[in-house]
């Protein structure tokens, strides 16, 4: 049985909405290169709706597919609807992810929420929000070796 579902493979091989929006209204970036995933989501907002959305992702197959899927799910949605989309819902829309990928590589909805937060912060005159580092654990050293 393949590691990834057909939908994951489809989004990995044909990612939707890759790129950047140069005059984006909101940008959400999170991840950590040491963990292996960084997602950056750009949104364009009009009349409280996500008019356009694009992403750039450094990461594994699951990271690319979840990024692609979340952009597809929220395009044209209101900000309130977009805020309700969870990482779990993105994984479900992809017919699931391997258990090991559920944590690190399934952060696309969080990145989207950051983009919305960034949009709101700028709109309220508070400026852009910072990137979020999702790495909360040690990576190096022999003492860290664990049984796979």
């Amino acid at each position: 049985m393949p590691v990834y579902s057909e939908k994951v493979m489809d989004h990995f091989q044909h990612p939707r909405n890759v790129g950047e929006i140069t005059d984006a209204d909101g940008i959400g970036e999170l991840g950590n290169p040491t963990c292996g995933d960084i997602m950056k989501i750009y949104i364009k907002v009009k009349d409280n709706k996500i008019e356009d959305v694009k992403f750039k992702t450094f990461g594994c197959g699951a990271a690319v597919a979840t990024s692609s899927m979340v952009t597809e799910l929220v395009k044209g949605k209101t900000l309130e609807e977009a805020e309700k989309i969870s990482n779990a819902a993105v994984a479900e829309a992809l017919d699931g992810l391997p258990p090991v990928k559920m944590h690190c590589s399934n952060l696309a909805a969080d990145a989207l929420h950051l983009a919305i937060e960034d949009y709101k912060s700028v709109k309220a005159g508070k400026g852009h929000i910072a990137k979020v580092d999702t790495c909360d654990h040690e990576h190096e050293g022999i003492d860290e070796l664990e049984h796979a």
Partner: peptide, 25 residues
Amino acid sequence: SACTSKILKSSHVLTAIGVDAALAQ
């Protein structure tokens, strides 16, 4: 890379030879 390792850690060998953690991905 960390993503392929199944324990989500990048190669301890690359770390040991001084490859930067991001580059090791």
